[in-house]
């Protein structure tokens, strides 16, 4: 656990991208998220950590209203994206999800070609006027996904034929292609081997230049490596939120300390 020593990171304060106020989430009768307040900054990687079932994935899925697809789920409180309430009746969740992209735990490329996988988002949102523009978007996204060099010669072979790590980077490229403002990642490396994980982590660090990235992770080392801000969730409560260096070296709450030193999990 020696790699836990966190290099002091320069944390320049960015403007707030997403602000959550008094957010509660219920699945039927169970109260999954309790009064969470958090501010997610632009051009920053924010990590959500916490033991299994603590609600971090649930909260992440509230940020682009993916929980709407679950019938029994109910959300109260305000979540503001650029100052606008995303749970307002006038907001179209479909439009919102184009602005707030999502990468899932298991790589889930569509059973289509690599090109069609990346072109999927731009096509349904009409982002390209013609084929040349679409080609350009696909190439740019694959470059951002740090996978262009590996797939440029086989853009029309199926995306499901790639290795796990390549599939996950393809999914990131696919999410990036719709030009989102925020990128949500739900344990993006949990199904990957260490080498693929390192590649994806490197990529996350690069993505910070353009996007606000929120990542849910079970690996504290990963949170320490890639994030600038960390939020610790426990039993549906947001226990502590602050700069990553501070959370890992000098936590305020005893529960945070217990978790990062491995006493509760």
């Amino acid at each position: 656990m020696n790699d836990m020593t966190v290099v002091e990171k320069t944390v320049e304060t960015q403007r707030t991208k997403i602000a959550a106020r008094n957010v509660n989430v219920y699945y039927g009768d169970s109260h999954a998220i309790k009064d969470v307040n958090v501010e997610i900054e632009d051009k920053t990687v924010t990590a959500f950590i916490g033991p299994s079932g603590c609600g971090k994935s649930t909260f992440l899925r509230c940020l682009n209203r993916m929980n709407d697809t679950i019938g029994t789920c109910r959300v109260t409180g305000d979540i503001l994206l650029e100052g606008e309430d995303i749970y307002d009746k006038r907001v179209d969740p479909v439009q919102l999800r184009a602005q707030v992209g999502m990468v899932f735990q298991k790589p889930n490329p569509f059973p289509k070609s690599i090109y069609d996988n990346v072109a999927y988002g731009p096509r349904i949102h009409g982002l390209a006027k013609n084929k040349a523009e679409l080609d350009e978007i696909v190439e740019k996204s694959l470059r951002r996904g740090a996978i262009w060099n590996e797939v440029k010669d086989r853009l029309h072979s199926p995306g499901t034929g790639l290795s796990g790590g390549q599939q996950q980077r393809l999914c990131i490229a696919r999410a990036v292609a719709t030009e989102p403002e925020v990128l949500l990642m739900d344990e993006p490396c949990s199904a990957l081997d260490p080498i693929a994980t390192a590649q994806v982590e490197e990529l996350i660090d690069e993505l910070r230049e353009n996007y606000s990235v929120v990542i849910v992770t079970h690996s504290m080392q990963q949170a320490a490596r890639v994030s600038q801000k960390t939020a610790f969730f426990h039993l549906g409560n947001l226990v502590e939120f602050g700069p990553t260096g501070q959370i890992f070296t000098n936590p305020e709450d005893p529960r945070t300390e217990s978790y990062i030193t491995g006493r509760i999990g």
Binding site: R97, G101, F110, I124
Partner: peptide, 20 residues
């Protein structure tokens, strides 16, 4: 995961059904 992937990209339900 296929549906989530498509919905997460901002596709509507019928687009997801039709294209994925």
């Amino acid at each position: 995961a296929m549906r989530d992937g498509s919905l997460g990209l901002g596709a509507t339900k019928s687009e997801t059904v039709r294209q994925v």
